[in-house]
Amino acid sequence: MKPVGAITRGTTNPNRLRRVDNFVAYRCGDLLKAASVPLVVDLGYGASPVTAVELRARLADTVRADLTVIGLEIDPVRVTAAQPWAAAPRLQFRRGGFELAGLSPVVVRAFNVLRQYPEEGVLEAWRSMTATGAVLVEGTCDELGRIATWAVVERGTPLTLTLSARLPVLEHPAVFAERLPKALIHHNVPGHPVYELLRSLGRAWETEATPFGPRQRWQATVRRMRAEGWPVLDGPARWRLGELTVPWPAEGQTS
C-alpha cells in the first residue's frame, strides 16, 4: 500500500507531546481498555522516534500495559533509524501515511503534521485517518510543548477543540492563535467563531488578574468563560492542567 502524504520537517523534542499524551489517556483511556486489540498509531513521529516511545510508556503506565504503539512515517530513512527502539515491548515503526498502512487502530495521534500541509488537504486527511473508526487527536504545539492546541476528530468530523498551556509561562491566551490546528489558523479573523473564542478568552484572562498564581488565574478565567455562556467541557481537574476544551468552533456557531 503506497503511503499517502508528503515528508515534512520532522523536528521534535523529548517531552514535547506530554500535554497531549495526558489528554489521550484521559479522553481515550476507556476505549483502549475495552478494545480487544489496543492499538495506537503515532502518525508522523518525525526525525526522532522519541515522542512515540514516550507515548507508549505513558499509556502503558496510565491505561493498560499490553497496549501497542506503532509509529508511522513516510520517510523510509526515518523508519530505518527508529528500528533500534522497536526492541522495546509493543513498540513498532513502519512506513505509512494518512492511510495508516492498512492498520485499524483505536486511536491516532497526529501532531505537528497537518500544520505543514495546505488547509484544503485537512478534511481528506481527517477522513482517511478515521475511516476505520479510530479516534483522531490532531494538533500542533510549540517547540517545547508549552503551548498546544488539538482537535478530537471522529469519522472525519471535528468534535472538540482543546487549548493547553504550561501555566507558569503563559503570558496571555493570545499565544494560542499561532498554534491553532491547520483547519482553524486561517479563520482567526473577525466574524469567525475561533476569533471570538480567543478574544473572549483574552478578555477573561485580563479580567481575572489576581495576586494568586497562574494556575488560579487560569481556573478563574475558564470559570468566567463558562459563566459568560461558552460551552466549556470537562471540569476543574482538567482546567488545573492548563486545558480549556470546547465544542469545535464551527462556522455559524456562537457562544
Results as ranks from 00 to 15, higher is better:
Ala87Pro: 08
Ala88Ile: 01
Ala88His: 09
Pro89Trp: 09
Pro89Ile: 05
Leu91Ile: 09
Gln92Ser: 13
Gln92Asp: 15
Gln92Val: 03
Phe93Trp: 12
Phe93Thr: 11
Phe93Cys: 12
Phe93His: 14
Arg94Ser: 02
Arg94Ala: 08
Gly97Met: 11
Phe98Met: 15
Phe98Glu: 15
Glu99Asp: 15
Leu100Tyr: 14
Ala101Thr: 06
Ala101Glu: 11
Gly102Leu: 09
Gly102Pro: 13
Leu103Glu: 15
Leu103Asp: 15
Ser104Ile: 04
Ser104Pro: 08
Pro105Glu: 06
Val106Thr: 14
Val106Met: 10
Val106Cys: 13
Val106Asp: 11
Val107Thr: 07
Val108Ile: 08
Arg109Trp: 00
Ala110Thr: 07
Ala110Met: 14
Phe111Val: 11
Asn112Val: 00
Asn112Ala: 00
Asn112Pro: 00
Val113Pro: 14
Leu114Met: 00
Arg115Phe: 09
Arg115His: 13
Gln116Tyr: 02
Gln116Gly: 01
Tyr117Pro: 12
Pro118Tyr: 03
Pro118Cys: 04
Pro118Met: 03
Glu119Ala: 13
Glu120Val: 02
Glu120Ser: 07
Gly121Cys: 07
Gly121Gln: 14
Gly121Met: 08
Val122Glu: 01
Val122Phe: 02
Val122Ser: 01
Val122Ile: 02
Leu123Ile: 04
Leu123Tyr: 05
Glu124Gly: 02
Ala125Met: 06
Ala125His: 12
Trp126Cys: 07
Arg127Trp: 06
Ser128Ile: 02
Ser128Trp: 12
Thr130Asp: 11
Thr132His: 13
Gly133Val: 00
Ala134Gly: 02
Val135Asn: 02
Leu136His: 04
Leu136Cys: 03
Val137Gly: 09
Glu138Leu: 04
Gly139Met: 03
Thr140Asp: 15
Thr140Ser: 14
Thr140Gln: 15
Asp142Trp: 04
Asp142Glu: 05
Glu143Leu: 10
Leu144Pro: 11
Leu144Trp: 11
Gly145Gln: 12
Gly145Trp: 08
Arg146Lys: 07
Ala148Cys: 10
Ala148Tyr: 10
Ala148Asp: 13
Trp150Val: 06
Ala151Arg: 06
Val152Asn: 11
Val152Arg: 15
Val152His: 10
Val152Pro: 12
Val153Lys: 05
Val153His: 07
Val153Trp: 06
Val153Thr: 05
Glu154Ala: 01
Glu154Met: 00
Glu154Asp: 00
Arg155Gly: 06
Thr157Phe: 03
Thr157Cys: 06
Pro158Lys: 10
Pro158Glu: 09
Thr160Ala: 00
Leu161Val: 08
Thr162Ile: 05
Thr162Met: 09
Ser164Trp: 12
Ser164Leu: 06
Ala165Trp: 03
Ala165Ser: 15
Ala165Tyr: 03
Leu167Cys: 09
Leu167Lys: 10
Leu167Thr: 08
Leu167Ser: 09
Pro168Trp: 07
Pro168Ser: 05
Val169Asp: 13
Glu171Cys: 04
Glu171Gln: 13
Glu171Asp: 14
His172Glu: 03
Pro173Ile: 04
Ala174Asp: 11
Val175Ala: 12
Val175Met: 10
Val175Pro: 13
Val175Ile: 15
Val175Gly: 10
Phe176Leu: 06
Phe176His: 13
Ala177Gln: 14
Arg179Lys: 08
Leu180Phe: 03
Pro181Gly: 09
Pro181Thr: 05
Lys182Tyr: 03
Lys182Cys: 07
Lys182Phe: 02
Lys182Val: 03
